[in-house]
C-alpha cells in the first residue's frame, strides 16, 4: 500500500492529491491518504482526514512507499521505518502553506534520504523510481548531546 501524508495544517494540497487519485484509478494502486484540510475528495483512494498518531505509525510501518508533503513531521515518521519516500514540497506562492518546503526536501534528497518531487505531473515516474529506492543511512544529530553538555556545564556542575 502507498501511504500518503499531506499534513494537518490548515491549507489544501490538491496539487498532490488530485493526480495521485487519478493515477490510483488508472493503475489500480492501493492508496491511503491522510487528507487533513485538503478540499479535493479522492474517489479511488481510501482516506481519513485525521488519524491517531499510533494508528498512522502502524500504517506507515506496513506501507511499501510513503508519499508525503515536504514537512518535517511526515518525512521523519517515514524515515523512522526506513520506507522509500517521495516528498512533495508545498508552494506558498500557490497558497499551499505559509512557508517554503523545497529547501529541506532538496537538502534531504542530496543526502539520499528521499526522492524529491517538485512537479506533480511527474508523480507516476517518481513512484516507479521509489519502488527500487531505499533511504541512505542517517547520521545521528549531535544536538541532544550539545544541549546536554550545555545544561550540565551551565546548571549542574558549575
Amino acid at each position: 500500500m502507498i501511504v500518503t501524508l499531506v499534513g494537518t495544517g490548515p491549507d489544501s494540497f490538491e496539487r498532490l492529491v488530485r493526480p495521485l487519485d487519478e493515477l490510483a484509478g488508472k493503475n489500480g494502486w492501493d492508496v491511503f491518504i491522510q487528507l487533513g484540510h485538503t478540499r479535493y475528495v479522492p474517489s479511488h483512494c481510501k482516506y481519513e482526514r485525521f488519524l491517531d498518531r499510533s494508528v498512522l505509525l502502524r500504517m506507515i510501518e506496513g506501507a511499501e512507499l510513503v508519499i508525503t508533503q515536504g514537512g518535517y513531521g511526515g518525512i521523519r515518521d517515514a524515515l523512522l521505518f526506513n520506507k522509500p519516500i517521495v516528498a512533495v514540497p508545498r508552494d506558498p506562492t500557490l497558497n499551499e502553506s505559509p512557508d517554503y518546503q523545497d529547501e529541506m526536501v532538496k537538502a534531504m534528497e542530496e543526502k539520499g534520504y528521499l526522492i524529491g518531487l517538485y512537479d506533480t505531473n511527474q508523480l507516476e515516474l517518481s513512484v516507479e523510481k521509489a519502488k527500487s529506492f531505499s533511504p541512505a543511512a542517517r547520521d545521528a544529530s549531535t544536538i541532544p548531546s550539545l544541549l546536554a553538555d550545555y545544561v550540565t556545564k551551565r546548571f549542574i556542575c558549575h
Partner: peptide
C-alpha cells in the same frame, strides 16, 4: 504544534531537565 514540536522533543531526549 506539528514538526516544530516533534523536533523539540527529539532535541531534549536524554537531556537532564
Amino acid at each position: 504544534g506539528g514538526g516544530h514540536l516533534a523536533e523539540a522533543l527529539l532535541a531534549i531526549k536524554g537531556v537532564p531537565l
